[in-house]
Simulated scan of single mutants.
Amino acid sequence: MTSPITAGHQLHTDALVADAHNDLLMLVVRRPPQLWATYFRDIWYPQLRKGGVDLQVLPIFIDHEFTPEGALRESLRMVEAAHRIAEGNPDLVALCRTGAEIDTAIESGRMALVLALEGCPQIDTDIELLQTFARLGVRIVSFTHFGRTALADGSGEDLTGSRLTRAGVEALALLESLGMAIDVSHLGATAVDHVLELATRPVIATHSSSRSLHDHHRNLSDDHIRGIAATGGLICVNLYAGYLTTEPPTLDHVVAHIEHLTDLAGPTKVGIGSDFVADLFAEKVPTCDRPLIIEGTNTEILVPGLEGPSGLPLVSHALLTAGHHENEVRGIAGSNLARFLGATRH
């Protein structure tokens, strides 16, 4: 008889595994351009493959040091890095623009990479640049991070009660016309309401958890979870401990958030958006500033085993152990996200 842990890990190995959020491009572009492809191949590809990842969304996030003047330039460097990763490792990965390209990459044994914009400081009110980024391969867009952009307020500004700006409304319409997905993770609560009022296509939250289980502004209310599902969209659970609990984090907290989302949205509307930060903070945060405390949370406290992509099989194992059906676990592990990305393309 197969042991439960073997069964869980075997299911994960056999499943299509997809992650809606890993900021690894921020670390790639810290290297000289001639090393971008080899750095990814030597450092990140082994971790992703150990985690079973077949499909990885790569956000383009612009740190404060580059805003406002350098935001567009740094964004283009990150786009170029993604293209060089794919061109330098054609046997391992493919940069995908369509659902068909994702299918082709995975069927050939390669990892499918999909670009996203996290926040839009490089856009400001020049929303026509969203079409430029679409031409370059970007398929998912969020309008802001914690703070304010010309398109919307982030969740850190919830007290403003702001909806999308006029430019934000125009940007949403343009994204829908281009077949690009709007991402509401990081968006302020009232702005999420506004998106759900306007959206005519499926909406995604690439890395958000449940506000009912942990009252953090980065998490989604039950109404928002239901609203995203009603668009035909997807909510991808954030595995970062600070958004899961104030207690010492465990895999049980991850399972609890997933179960709450599936109860509200249905098991076909839930995925994983890991938001792994350990490698990022280890390299970017000086020793004198550690531990890094953000909003009273020690950013170095992580769910044991989920320090990076190689830990993803633990989530599938925990769900299977908790009694979830194999098909449901497979969907959450990745096929739901793969299906969503196929459905949001022309």
Rank of each mutant, 00 (worst) to 15 (best):
H9T: 12
H12K: 05
L16C: 12
A20N: 09
N22I: 12
V28T: 15
T38G: 03
Y39K: 00
D42S: 14
P46W: 06
P46A: 04
P59G: 04
P59I: 04
D63F: 12
T67G: 00
G70W: 07
S75D: 05
R84F: 01
E87M: 06
E87A: 15
L95W: 06
T98E: 11
I102C: 04
L113K: 06
V114L: 11
G119Q: 05
T125C: 08
E128R: 10
L136Q: 12
H145E: 04
G147E: 12
G147N: 12
A150W: 05
L159W: 09
L164R: 07
L172V: 07
S177C: 06
L178E: 07
G188R: 01
H194Y: 11
E197F: 00
T200H: 14
S210K: 02
H214I: 00
H216N: 14
R226N: 03
T231H: 01
G232H: 05
G232I: 06
G233P: 01
I235H: 03
C236V: 03
G242T: 02
D252S: 13
T268Y: 00
I272Q: 02
F281C: 02
E283R: 13
N298E: 11
T299W: 11
T299D: 00
E300W: 09
I301R: 13
L312G: 06
P313H: 11
L319R: 08
H324W: 14
N327C: 00
R330Y: 09
I332V: 15
S335M: 06
N336I: 10
N336R: 08
L337K: 11
F340P: 00
L341F: 13
T344L: 05
R345C: 07
R345P: 00
